[in-house]
Design a protein around this nucleic acid. Structure first.
Lengths: 190, 190
DNA sequence: ACATGATGTCATCATCTGTAGACATCGAGC
DNA sequence: GCTCGATGTCTACAGATGATGACATCATGT
């Protein structure tokens, strides 16, 4: 019988997937540094040594979660209301995720730095930049970067415990506020 | 001869001060977790064991740096141009510092969490809140929190390495952009 | 059925980190 | 000059962490 078709008790593909999902959740909740390979393995119900085997270590697994997230959504820009709403909702609930974390903290591992930087740019900065360009604004990339940075600040602020009001407010309200903050990056005279 | 008046070879006050300064710099550059007591001691030119003796451990030293910064500046709000300029300048140069770091990441130690939260509120949120109140805006505290969170995002974005344009741009330009971002939090309809 | 590669498990290592305590040395007051 | 508290230095420990390799077990093709 084909191994792929049957529900195998030993299934490398499945183990990889379990690790990837567990890692995605934990990295989003606690960040890269504060997450241990043993925690990931425990949540995945898998032995920790498999991280080294299948992902060449913790850093490789982190990059894999980046790559996985990279394909999960559209590339619409943050100023489209549904996009902003969806992102704020998901990120407030499950944690900021590896891409936004790169906006706020530099990683030690150069491979991680580069992968995160690329993803952040492609998924969040570039779409906004394109919009600003099409609107004829000057310095579109700079404006897009500022907007994404401010967006990251709001997202982290919602989960950091430092802003009680911001943490408790309704999604719609945060969306309205954040939208106006992003507009600020577009309308500033530079 | 009085011990305090003379330049003593053994001087606890001086050792404490050296540790505090070294810790302030390192915590700002790398954050709490990534800074080790041995690094702090080395930069201070002092033995690491003195951290435990004089500050009751790493967490105590961190809180001491918070307290020290708490008294170093005025309590003007971020929308005063000179205040915004001064802060953006300093934080871009020396790193975000412990207070803003609390805006973005939750600390493990409850004592640290509480101290950082209080300082963040008193020094940044409350002044903005007062301004918004005096302008007759609704939800002044929420607006102030959003503004500070966005501000933190911009500051971290400048040093995270993820935003090349933002990192390189002149101080005046960042100030103009950030100011408009903060205004967004004030003008949004909620 | 058997050989072989794939997959999983386990024990262990090397390193780093914060902390504590023993010990040494200095300096002020008598 | 001596004593004793203050200050500094050194070693070591206990826990955590990422990584590694040896070994066991399963599944597949023949």
């Amino acid at each position: 019988m084909s191994a792929v078709a049957a529900g195998r008790r030993r299934d490398a593909v499945r183990s990889r997937e379990l690790l990837l999902q567990a890692a995605t959740g934990l990295f989003a909740e606690r960040g890269f540094d504060r997450t241990t390979v043993r925690e990931i393995a425990e949540r995945a119900g898998v032995d920790a040594a498999l991280i080294a085997r299948y992902y060449d270590g913790k850093a490789g697994l982190y990059i894999a979660t980046l790559r996985a997230q990279a394909g999960d959504g559209s590339f619409r820009d943050l100023l489209q209301l549904d996009r902003l709403t969806e992102l704020l909702d998901r990120l407030s609930r499950h944690g900021a995720g590896p891409i936004l974390q790169a906006a706020v903290r530099e990683h030690d591992d150069p491979a991680i730095r580069e992968a995160a930087r690329t993803d952040l740019h492609d998924r969040l900065v570039a779409p906004l930049q394109a919009r600003f360009e099409s609107e004829g604004l000057d310095r579109p990339e700079l404006r897009a970067e500022v907007a994404v940075a401010a967006f990251a600040g709001v997202v982290f602020g919602r989960t950091s415990g430092a802003f009680p009001e911001l943490a408790d407010v309704s999604l719609d309200t945060v969306v309205a506020l954040t939208r106006q903050v992003l507009e600020g990056a577009a309308t500033a005279e530079v």
